[in-house]
Write a protein that binds this DNA or RNA. Structure first.
Lengths: 244, 244
DNA sequence: CCAATAACAAGAGCACTGCTCTTGATTTTG
DNA sequence: CAAAATCAAGAGCAGTGCTCTTGTTATTGG
């Protein structure tokens, strides 16, 4: 189905791409709220009504941009993982490299980030087409931990009883081969990573965190510990700083 | 300045409250994107132009709702803290109670939550009026850890060198009396808490996490560990689950 | 007490928006 | 080559935020 049948079909995918490109430009410049179908059409020199032949509604256009954004950040994470693996970096270093790549993508594309990890703009339920691309970053994080498990094992606390079934299901579904203890810490770290990034991108760290690079590195290193990496490192908990 | 001068002033605060109430109703029902000044005016039986005597723009109305939302979730967190303290709960139990209260508020008010912890809707920078209410939840978390520090001390890893100055500034500014090692773990846990909640509220856990209560409890217990609570508990890191 | 002043409500109107329907031109297909 | 599908464009609808103008109240100073 990769052959283009005629001039019409060729023009169609070309115009579709042009619409998405212009929409991305407006998204980058002004954010999702200000994205206007009429403005896109105006910039492309066509009637606004003609645009509905390519995207049946504004929400459908936004969904296409959402998928592209998920793919973009997923690609960044995967690229960082590839290079870290090629450099034979430690598993913690790979974890940090991947999370750093996600953070840097978010800072470079704040509006796209807000589109996919901020408030869901169109309706409530994410369209089916987004769930695949949406999981790419999570899969990379799983891969890092799975690699570490295979070579060094993981340092993890025992599994809570009431999460046994949940954890078994999770590893069976998303991370075959990982021990069940790794499941909930991994999912938690995944969401917490985006908590760190969201607070930075959305300005919640304004006048709170200044050296954000160092702060982030420290936070994700701790996150690496909670998913079982860094188990054989230095003593985790030195004698507590005693109270008064 | 609490005395109401005349019928005019009394009517003014009454109408202002009515506008905010109706706006909150629409926000709750449809979300921030669908909130319409004209619809609010229509529902209140007044002309849309009359509304501009009370709020100079739609964004100003939204800002008022943002402040109220921050106050609402802050109040929930503070109430949970008060009752946990009154019951002489352990510090970890207090931590869990506060985080649970925030989560439950978020699940009960998803649109308000999205308004304050999702993508920033109006412009880019948060108005000055929001920074005070916005910090209330964070202050409660700090209070929990500060109490624990005073009575039991905290179990924290040593401070990284490149975060020394940052940590000193943080504790001086937001958490006087806390040791500098507590600063960055606390800020990180604060943002990560909202990562957990955002993923649940925004549907990212759909078909990933099923038993969300148990998962959340486990995740915030781990978060309690990273901020230094639970230091004297069971062994943190048992022998790793060895790899193949 | 009454006029000057300020605050108010309402209406009309502007420039937008998403979206639909109809009309006419173009391309693909039987 | 004719029939059918696809496309572009215009007009139009209902809705939005916001402004300006015109009256109408309530508060205030002389």
């Amino acid at each position: 189905m990769s052959t283009v049948r005629g001039a019409r079909e060729r023009a169609r995918i070309e115009v579709t791409a042009a619409i998405k490109d212009e929409a991305k430009k407006q998204l980058m410049a002004e954010g999702a709220a200000k994205l206007s179908l009429r403005a896109v059409a105006r910039e492309l020199g066509m009637a606004s009504s003609a645009l509905y032949r390519y995207f049946p509604s504004r929400d459908e256009l936004l969904t296409a941009l959402i998928v592209d954004a998920y793919d973009s950040v997923g690609e960044s994470a995967e690229a960082a993982h590839r290079t870290a693996r090629a450099e034979a970096a430690t598993h913690v270093a790979r974890w940090i490299a991947v999370t750093r790549a996600v953070r840097e993508w978010a800072l470079a594309h704040p509006h796209e980030y807000a589109l996919i990890y901020g408030s869901p703009v169109p309706g409530y339920t994410a369209p089916q087409a987004t769930i695949g691309p949406a999981s790419r970053v999570g899969l990379v994080l799983i891969a890092v931990v799975a690699d570490a498990y295979r070579t060094d094992g993981l340092a993890l606390p025992p599994l809570a009883d009431d999460l046994r079934a949940e954890a078994d299901r999770m590893v069976a579904e998303f991370a075959p081969g990982l021990p069940p203890q790794a499941a909930t810490p991994l999912i938690a770290a995944w969401s917490q990573l985006f908590g760190l990034i969201s607070f930075e991108v959305f300005g919640q760290f304004h006048r709170v965190v200044e050296d954000r690079e160092a702060f982030f590195r420290e936070a994700v290193t701790e996150l690496a510990r909670t998913v079982g990496l860094l188990g054989g490192g230095a003593a985790r908990r030195p004698a507590g700083t005693a109270g008064p």
